[in-house]
Design a protein around this nucleic acid. Structure first.
Length: 486
DNA sequence: AACGACTCCAACCGCCACGTA
DNA sequence: TTACGTGGCGGTTGGAGTCGT
């Protein structure tokens, strides 16, 4: 494993978490805590051999092992299971983890199911280590081809989603169990696919929405070492098994494995600051982390504000409760934290803006409209038209998205200096109400996610989306080509 | 050699979903 | 319907090893 060039494996075999065992009062007897001993392992192994997995609380009773059921299960699952693969992750496994994380986020168990012999804990540790390392190096968490893929996926989802919507049928009626999508919502979805947040909507994989189990369930059946009783939480749907296909095609001349090691990345003279590559385009704010001084003064040494963002580590296709509607619809364009700070420091005076965070008052529309204006520098008339269209549409109203533009917001928009021209478009601006209502949410979103650019809602309104996305795609492609072929 | 920063990862914790009485 | 037990999951902690100064 690139993150453990040497020494790591030999070390982990002998040490425990605690230097000494602790004892805790249990309900019936003393329960041990801390590292497991070989004797305990033997007892547990023998117990499972005789009785099988499950009923972990009975282990203590029947075997005399002074461990709680949870601890037994964990020990078995992470260390004693015979089908475990020990040792470092292979480059292929690392690729897989990165790809999976870009798609499903911190679903470690799900990832483990895709990586036979690997445990969620291993994967989690690998990822956390990787994130730390990349943060420290001021590098993006995901390699460029992941961003490109996210871009590509969004475009494909948009196209496919349109076709599917028009058909209005699920491929397989039996697959609607988990995602029973009402026709009404379906229509709303179609109606608004052309709005500025369409990319974010389509960020939800169509396979997730319409043919969710068809691929993933087969995949799990075939590959998953997961215990039969192991269940996935709802909406934890792995929607795409196309990993093998895209990775080699997105950035064909880029050594993806090399990228994953910070050492090698650091050695790459032209990839030392991915942020810089894109920052100047005004389209893609930055790979950099919020709060990093790099975005402010070019000093890449600090990333003191990363923690909050990275803790969220939201999956690209899963959204905070307060930013999603009934479909898990992402409703949150993401401004840079700097811009949020700016706005927070100038809180709106309208009491209505102090609404608590709510899916029904996300203020997304405000942001979308504002953002659209910001991006295109369009005049206020077109914006007001967009706002009017959105607000008047019953479909929007009927969805939980239901963005509300307060009178104050509208006024603010009309009065906004942006109406008089924007000179610094590297810092997205958002309406006060949006920022006020979504302060918490904004602080949680992880802009380092490859498709955060879509959650941002970088693209303008319906007619602008395709054009802007093409521009961004071309720009990214050109930049990457220059950088990694050059 | 001493020290601190960093890395790795086993284990714990709290929350949640599900099954069942 | 409710309460409870169980197991699964993701986040976090902190000990031990490694590395650099």
């Amino acid at each position: 494993m690139s993150s453990m060039p040497n020494g790591g494996d030999s070390r982990k075999m002998s040490k425990g978490r605690r230097s000494s065992l602790s004892v805790e009062e249990g309900s019936e007897s003393l329960l041990m805590k801390g590292p497991w001993t070989a004797a305990e392992d033997a007892i547990l192994t023998e117990y499972v051999r005789k009785h099988g997995e499950g009923n972990w609380n009975a282990v203590q009773k029947h075997s005399g092992l002074a461990r709680c059921g949870k601890s037994c299960r964990l020990r078995w699952a992470n260390h004693l299971r015979p089908d475990l693969r020990k040792g470092a992750f292979t480059p292929e496994e690392e690729d897989r983890i990165i790809d999976l994380h870009s798609r499903i986020g911190n679903k470690w168990a799900r990832m483990a199911a895709e990586l036979p012999g690997r445990t969620d804990n291993e994967i989690k540790n690998f990822w956390n280590t990787r994130v730390k390392r990349m943060q420290r190096a001021d590098l993006p968490i995901y390699p460029p081809h992941i961003y490109l893929r996210a871009l590509s996926d969004n475009q494909e989802s948009l196209d496919v989603g349109t076709v599917k919507n028009e058909s209005g049928q699920h491929d397989d009626p039996s697959q609607t169990d988990n995602f029973d999508i009402p026709d009404l919502e379906f229509k709303n979805y179609k109606i608004h696919q052309g709005l500025s947040y369409a990319p974010a909507i389509f960020d939800i994989p169509e396979s997730n929405m319409f043919e969710q189990p068809s691929v993933s369930s087969r995949s799990y059946n075939a590959m998953s070492p997961m215990h039969p009783r192991k269940r996935f939480r709802e909406a934890d749907v792995l929607y795409d098994s196309s990993f093998d296909g895209y990775i080699s095609s997105a950035v064909p001349l880029f050594d993806q494995h090399d990228y994953y090691t910070s050492e090698k990345v650091s050695d790459h003279p032209r990839f030392s600051s991915p942020c810089d590559l894109i920052l100047d385009t005004g389209q893609f704010h930055c790979y950099n982390f919020p709060g990093s001084h790099a975005t402010r003064n070019g000093n890449t040494s600090s990333s003191t504000s990363i923690t909050g963002a990275m803790k969220s580590e939201l999956p690209s296709l899963q959204y905070l409760e307060d930013q999603q509607g009934v479909w898990g619809m992402p409703t949150s364009p993401l401004p840079s934290l700097e811009s949020v700070d700016t706005l927070i420091q100038s809180p709106p005076t309208d009491p209505a803006r102090s609404d608590p965070l709510s899916p029904r008052s996300s203020g997304l529309l405000d942001a979308i409209i504002w953002e659209s204006k910001n991006l295109k520098g369009s005049n206020s008339n077109s914006l007001k038209q967009t706002a009017g269209n959105c607000i008047s549409n019953e479909a929007i109203k009927s969805s939980t998205l239901n963005p509300r533009m307060t009178e104050c917001d509208e006024q603010w928009e009309l009065d906004s200096p942006l109406d008089h021209g924007i000179t610094d478009r590297s810092v997205p601006q958002f309406p006060p109400a949006y920022c006020s209502r979504n302060k918490k949410m904004l602080s949680k979103i992880d802009p380092t996610r490859p498709d955060a650019v879509f959650e941002f809602g970088w693209f303008g309104n319906s007619t602008e989306y395709s054009e802007d996305q093409t521009v961004l795609r071309d720009a990214l492609d050109a930049l990457l080509r220059d950088d990694f072929r050059g």
